[in-house]
């Protein structure tokens, strides 16, 4: 039992990986079997390019949503679209989307549909009346904050929405991402031109209508559309691909009509996220070197909650 190496030619007894036995080897002896239980890249997943592209498309979709929302706001801010037109369009979109959503519903819960429709109507009514009632309050909420701060906050919140969005389980969208998006929309809505153009002042109904429109569209784009998109993806995968591409194009064209430079940036971002990043992921996969061995903490794979409930 020496600590030093160089014990000469190995003794005749083979080394064993045990501590209870005093073995005729030095303490720093390195056997041939050293690290023999090391395993590399055991749970490695082989990705296929188009499968990854399809998944990455979801991220691109959410970026498009943000771009579309900002485009709508730009249109309203420059007075190119009246809130009434947008509201009616929004209502139409919502009804169409709702119909599509119901049509694509899985057969299993068709029996309790009546109740669901009624409760859907209830939630919609509650939301609309509350938003309408609170619009004047929400409009003046950030009035005392400087415009620069509001824009910075909006950018930050939209970024937070993109980061926190639950891409793996987008229906319903996570509360953090949804709240960030709604906060951003409240910020943006307060900078719409309504009360400054109309001499009536702070109580001008058009300004509150602007806010109301903005919030409704925020809900459509950030809450309801991801749900419909997820259902499309589950029930009609081929249609989903087309819708994705169409949405992306709408986003680029819409932004391009006001700000061509922004559209180029958006197109580049979408291209990078959907096409380039998956390529990079697959390229870098060969560099992956994950090592496992007996030192790893054992995982509890069973559902132990069954003993408690």
């Amino acid at each position: 039992m020496g600590a030093d190496s160089g014990a000469g030619p190995g003794p005749s007894v083979p080394w064993r990986k045990v501590l209870w036995e005093r073995q005729p080897f030095p303490d720093n002896y390195v056997d041939r079997r050293f690290l023999e239980e090391l395993r590399r890249n055991e749970d490695l997943r082989q990705y296929r390019y188009w499968a990854v592209v399809r998944e990455a498309g979801l991220v691109a979709q959410q970026i498009t949503c943000v771009a579309l929302f900002v485009t709508l706001w730009l249109y309203m801010e420059q007075g190119l679209l009246s809130p009434a037109t947008l509201l009616w369009t929004g209502l139409l979109c919502a009804l169409l989307g709702y119909g599509l959503y119901q049509a694509l519903a899985p057969q299993a819960d068709s029996d309790n549909q009546q109740r669901t429709r009624w409760s859907d109507l209830q939630s919609a009514a509650i939301f609309l009346s509350f938003t309408f009632g609170f619009s004047p309050v929400l409009r003046t909420l950030t009035e005392s904050v400087s415009t620069d701060t509001v824009y910075a906050m909006t950018a930050l919140m939209l970024l937070a929405h993109l980061v926190a969005f639950p891409y793996a389980q987008p229906s319903p969208p996570g509360s953090l991402s949804l709240n960030a998006a709604l906060f951003a929309s409240v910020c943006l809505a307060s900078r719409l031109p309504g009360d400054r153009h109309i001499p009536g002042g702070a109580h001008s109904p058009s300004s509150s209508l602007h806010t109301f429109t903005m919030l409704c569209w925020a809900l459509l784009v950030f809450a309801l559309w991801p749900c419909l998109r997820q259902r499309l993806r589950e029930r009609a995968p081929s249609g989903f691909g087309c819708v994705c591409v169409l949405m992306g194009m709408c986003g680029v064209v819409g932004l391009g009509s006001l700000w061509p430079g922004g559209a180029v940036l958006l197109a580049a971002a979408l291209g990078a996220v959907t096409l380039l990043c998956p390529l990079l992921l697959i390229r870098l996969q060969s560099d992956k070197d994950n090592i496992q061995g007996p030192w790893d903490e054992a995982e509890i794979r069973e559902d132990l909650a069954r003993f408690l409930h």
Binding site: L19, P26, D27, N28, V30, L35, P294, W295
Partner: peptide
């Protein structure tokens, strides 16, 4: 303190195993 611990430490710190002794 054990051979498994030695393998672990050698890998974690990228060491020459000759300078690592196992003393339980």
């Amino acid at each position: 303190v054990s051979y498994t611990s030695k393998e672990n430490t050698v890998l974690r710190a990228a060491l020459n195993p000759e300078i690592v002794s196992v003393i339980p």
